[in-house]
Design a protein around this nucleic acid. Structure first.
Lengths: 220, 220
DNA sequence: GCTTTGTTTTGTGTATACAAGAATATCCGG
DNA sequence: CCGGATATTCTTGTATACACAAAACAAAGC
C-alpha cells in the first residue's frame, strides 16, 4: 500500500510491540500527526485500524489509549493461542508435504544449535521460524492469519517474559516431541503437545502479573 | 457509543449480512454518505473498521468492495470455525456450572420443540442460542468473542445454505451427542462431536460453491 | 481545608476543501 | 471503422476548519 495510514499502522504497531508505547498510554492524535509529519486524518484512520485489531482502545470523545490487558484477559488469550497452535499442529501432521517436513526439521535443528550455543535471542528468533513452519503445514491460510494476529497482539506482553532458568532446554525438548508427532502423522498427539507447550509459556503469566503493575506505572 | 461511525458500522454490517450489499459490490463513499445523511469522514472510518473485520476489502486509491470469499477461503474459515466451537465445547465440558448446564439443556429442548414443529426458521434461531450456551460455558470471553466474530463473518454465506433434507433432525441428533458429552464431562468427545457438527455444515460448501457465481453476477 | 460549581482549555468528531491517481471518454491517425 | 494517446471526469486520500463534549482548573461557598 502506498497510503499513509498503512505505513503509519505498521510503525505505531511496532512501537506498541516493542513497548515504546506502553499499555494504558494516551495516544494524542495531534501529537502523533506532528511526530510523523502528516495531518490528523491518517492518524485517526490508523488508530481505528489498531482499535479493530485490539491493540488500542478508543472511547468516544475520550481518545485512544494503548490497550491494557489484565491478567484474566492474558490467560484467556494464551489459552486461545494454544488452541490455535494445536490446531495448526493437528492439521500439519496430516497435511505436510515432504518438503515442508524438511523445513520443519531444519528449523528444529536451528533451534538446537541456538540452544547449544546458549543464545537466547537467537533461540527466540529460530523458535518463531519453527512455529511458522508448523503454521505453514496446516495449509489453511485463514488459520495462519488468525494465529499470527493473536501472536502479534500478545507480543507486547511476551516481551516481558523473564528468561526462565532452563527454559531453552525445556522448550527444545517439547519441540522434539512435537516434531516426532507431526512427522509420525499423529495429529492428536501433536495437538496435545503443542497446546501444552504454548500454555506453559502462558502459565508464566504469574510472572507477567507480577510485572503488570510496574508496567502501568511506567505508562502513567 | 454515540459516534456516527459506530452506528454506521452496525447498519452497513447488517446490510452485508442480509445480503443487501452483495460480495464484490463497490461501496461508494459519497453515495453512502448521502444515503445516511452524513459526510464522507464517518463513512470512511466505518469502511476502515469493516475492512479490519474482513467484511470489506479496501484497495488503495480504488475504493472499497464487499469482501468476496472464494470456495477455498470459505472452507478454511469453516475449518477454523469448527475448531473454535470444538474448543468451546472442550472447555465447557470441564467448566460449566450447574446453572449453565441447565441453560444448555433448556436450549437443547427448545431445538427439539422447533424440530418437532418442523419450523426451520425457529430452529435456526434456537440453534444459535444452543451454540451460545456452549460458548458461555467455556468461561473464556476472548474465545467467545473470536468465535462470534467468525460466525458473523460467515453469516452472509450461511444465508445461502440450502435447506437440506432432514438437516433439522440430523442436526438435533448431533446436538444430543454434544450435550451428553458436555454434561458427562468428556471434553475430548464434546470437541470431536462439535468439530464434526460444524464441519458438516461447512461441507455443504459444495452447494455454496454452486451458488457463488450467481451471487457474484447479482453484485455486478 | 475541602467540596463544589462555573469557566477555560484541550482534544475529539464531523464537515468541507483540496490534491492526486485511476477510470473513462474523446479525438485523431491509420 | 478501429486502436491508441491524451484529456477529462470521477473517486479516493489528505489537509484544514469548525463545533462540541469532556477534562482541567480556578474561584467561591461551606
Amino acid at each position: 500500500m502506498t497510503t499513509h495510514s498503512a505505513t503509519l499502522r505498521e510503525e505505531i504497531e511496532e512501537m506498541i510491540a516493542i513497548g515504546e508505547l506502553k499499555p494504558g498510554q494516551h495516544l494524542d492524535e495531534t501529537e502523533l500527526a506532528a511526530r510523523f509529519g502528516v495531518s490528523r486524518t491518517p492518524v485517526r484512520e490508523t488508530l481505528i485500524q489498531l482499535a479493530s485489531m485490539g491493540l488500542v482502545v478508543i472511547r468516544p470523545r475520550r481518545g485512544a489509549i494503548v490497550a491494557e490487558l489484565g491478567p484474566q484477559q492474558l490467560v484467556e488469550m494464551f489459552e486461545v493461542m494454544s488452541e490455535l497452535e494445536a490446531t495448526c499442529g493437528r492439521l500439519a501432521a496430516r497435511r505436510m508435504t515432504p518438503v515442508e517436513q524438511q523445513a520443519l526439521l531444519a528449523a528444529h535443528q536451528a533451534c538446537q544449535d541456538a540452544r547449544d550455543a546458549q543464545e537466547p535471542d537467537v533461540y527466540y528468533y529460530k523458535n518463531e521460524l519453527f512455529h511458522e513452519a508448523i503454521y505453514a503445514g496446516s495449509h489453511n491460510q485463514f488459520l495462519i492469519e488468525q494465529t499470527r494476529n493473536l501472536y502479534r497482539r500478545l507480543r507486547p506482553y511476551r516481551r516481558l517474559q523473564l528468561r526462565v532458568r532452563d527454559r531453552l532446554s525445556t522448550s527444545y525438548h517439547e519441540h522434539d516431541g512435537v516434531v516426532q508427532a507431526i512427522v509420525g502423522g499423529d495429529g492428536e498427539l501433536a495437538a496435545r503437545l503443542l497446546r501444552e507447550h504454548v500454555m506453559i509459556q502462558g502459565q508464566r503469566f504469574s510472572d507477567l502479573m507480577a510485572s503488570l503493575p510496574q508496567l502501568q506505572r511506567d505508562a502513567a
